[in-house]
Write a protein that binds this DNA or RNA. Structure first.
Lengths: 252, 252
DNA sequence: CGCTCAGTTGAACCCGCTCAAGCTGCGTGG
DNA sequence: CCACGCAGCTTGAGCGGGTTCAACTGAGCG
């Protein structure tokens, strides 16, 4: 089993965060049919309103979900990174209620919706893991609602920086306290319900408070515990394995 | 099969919105083990941080999901009505990342988590319907993010009034253009990321614009098409059967 | 009849927005 | 190798939607 050479290997890695898979199950996942594709920044994976026939595994790069309002403003709903299944949501619901786009250059694998459902219901553990994955996405949406609804600008940004660092580290893409942000300040604003100008000012404040250091898009978190406090961050909502809890709960 | 007399009948009704069930499947659902309970307003169904062992069917009344921030502010994430499965999210994820409380007096049926999973994976159609149900919850979360992040107060309220009316009508609990709001203005505010004072003023504006009429909590939508426009409402995100589309798309 | 909770209204304030100008880094081409 | 262009970042000044604080009204209830 040459798992690491399969284009679908990142999906196996991801699902093993949620469940322990047997060899048979891993093979069943790797045997899924797929079509590979490379995407340029801002190229659409699926457009709002489209009929989704395929699910999409993000193999490299970053992607984001978005919705537009009548005035033309954009709201970014979530940012995804290599290993994420970026379109279980839309593909299972059939009609896409939101768009998914490449944030950076990205490689994706499209898997037919029916094949995903078949493997999910043939192998209960896989099914539970996929379902769980969509539920964790939901948990991130909930935390986003709380942030935008009830936290001020600086807190929102601090929170996002914590979340992003942790997710990158768990995905094996970097360190939680030093990484490259793949988005512009405008995109950050659309993510957090702020204007780019305000994002800029709030980032400066976090720097001035000696919580982070920045050089272009590179972020170094100088005072992790401080940023966690500043961002009112409690990572339980990420539903990661318990080992990670030390990162947002400095006491334990 | 005395379906209508089973306390679990509302769940069957709900799932049949998402899938066509056979008699065998209906019976399998009604045969699920459960424990009934009555709840007073603001009584907790599950608290944030608890280990969830049961899923919960809301048989009557209203319930809501919430998260608290450090400052003490509350964000209401979703409001649920009779027939909704209010805790698939938490119970499948095991550790509750948000609390669920009764909004009004309510009757619920607790179903063991494992029994739900068993029936979902034994009957694929049921499994798909339950999964679909959690995905639709996710879709509502996404729309909420858009509203709070990118729409102003009056628009948010108009949008919520449209959503609520439609959901009540589809659940068989009322008419989309005339119903009783089960929440206080403070709760509305916590739902929409506004203060109660501002909710009050925005409701007045919608009245002044002759879109709605109010008498205490009773809402009558005088100009449905106008409110849909005012609230930038497009109900696709509810993923209802296509017949409903006429309600938010006055053209067709 | 008086208490309490929800709703209503007014006035002052402030966080975040808007508009606008300048800056920085970097790719491109002459 | 420099000039140019452009996209993203930075900073300032003024404005406004929504908040905060506070007082008052009204309905339900013991």
């Amino acid at each position: 089993m040459l798992m690491n050479q399969s284009p679908l290997a990142p999906m196996v890695r991801k699902l093993e965060q949620w469940a322990t898979l047997t060899d048979v199950e891993r093979e069943a996942l790797l045997a899924l049919p797929y079509v590979l594709q490379s995407l340029a920044p801002n190229e659409a994976i699926i457009k709002e309103g489209d009929r989704a026939t395929h699910s999409c595994l993000l193999r490299s790069g970053f992607a984001y979900r978005q919705k537009l309002v009548r005035t033309g403003a954009r709201q970014i709903l979530a940012v995804h990174m290599a290993g994420d299944m970026v379109d279980l949501q839309n593909s299972l619901l059939r009609i896409a209620d939101h768009g998914v786009l490449a944030l950076t250059a990205a490689e994706v694998a499209f898997i037919p919706r029916e094949a995903v459902l078949d493997v999910a219901f043939k192998h209960r553990t896989i099914g539970e893991a996929l379902w769980f994955d969509t539920l964790v996405d939901g948990s991130l949406f909930r935390e986003r609602i709380v942030g935008i609804g009830r936290r001020d600008g600086a807190t929102r940004i601090a929170h996002l920086l914590c979340e992003f660092g942790l997710r990158l580290e768990v995905a094996g893409l970097g360190s939680h306290h030093e990484y490259e942000l793949p988005m512009t300040q405008e995109e950050l604003g659309d993510c957090l319900g702020l204007t780019p100008v305000h994002v800029n000012r709030m980032l400066r404040i976090l720097s001035d408070e000696a919580l982070i250091e920045r050089k272009q898009r590179a972020v170094r978190i100088v005072d992790w515990a401080g940023l966690v406090r500043r961002g009112d961050f409690d990572g339980s909502y990420l539903h990661m394995r318990s080992e990670c809890a030390r990162l947002w709960n400095p006491v334990s």
